[in-house]
């Protein structure tokens, strides 16, 4: 951790809001994008963005500096999302073990066309971009958190492990299942093109 950040944290722990605001400035874009990736909705993201930093402000005294501040903030953000979802309960996620159906017929997950070279396989294709976002939203929470942190935000497996406080094998297995789910969902999109 940089010395300047240490000083800002110490000041914030003494109740200095100006120092805390500087810390917010440093991390807000990353936190906003993590929340947006996990929630897929701007309004909900704005609410939980504020909640994340308010929780951080309330708990800043308990931050001991064992991890990076960013890791601590990411953990608060992910927990805020999970708690909110738990309260809402009714989430329309699809089990990643659920068979894929198309036109009333179940499709084998394994036999699919190679769509990787399709000119439509780019995020400039707005329809596909929407499909990617929707697919992320359909992932069960624990898989979504890992996928967003790892593949969207670009953290390493080790960093994801520290943020989510789960074991490395769990990170790997959740990431694998999340990616497979994404691949299946995108394949179903290309199958209907």
């Amino acid at each position: 951790m940089k010395e300047s950040e240490k000083i800002l944290i110490e000041n914030a722990q003494k109740g200095d809001t100006a120092s805390f605001e500087k810390l917010i400035k440093k991390h807000e874009v990353k936190i906003y994008n993590l929340l947006l990736g996990m929630l897929g909705n701007v309004h909900a993201t704005e609410d939980l963005f504020q909640e994340t930093f308010i929780t951080a402000w309330k708990k800043i005294k308990s931050f001991r500096g064992d991890s990076e501040l960013s890791t601590w903030l990411y953990r608060i953000a992910v927990n805020t999302v999970l708690m909110k979802k738990r309260k809402k309960k009714k989430i329309t996620t699809i089990s990643i073990d659920e068979p894929i159906e198309s036109h009333g017929k179940e499709i084998s997950r394994d036999i699919q066309d190679d769509w990787s070279n399709s000119p439509l396989a780019t995020l400039e294709n707005k329809e596909l971009k929407k499909k990617v976002f929707n697919s992320i939203q359909k992932l069960p929470d624990k898989y979504r958190a890992v996928l967003v942190l790892r593949d969207v935000d670009g953290f390493s497996n080790d960093e994801v492990k520290n943020i989510l406080k789960i074991s490395l094998p769990s990170v790997k297995s959740r990431l694998h299942r999340a990616r497979m789910f994404m691949r299946n969902n995108l394949s179903s999109y290309f199958r209907t093109r």
């Binding site: 990787s116 396989a121 596909l128 670009g154 691949r183």
Partner: peptide
């Protein structure tokens, strides 16, 4: 390609 799209 799926992973690449997420990275993008």
């Amino acid at each position: 390609k799926t992973v690449e799209l997420c990275h993008q």
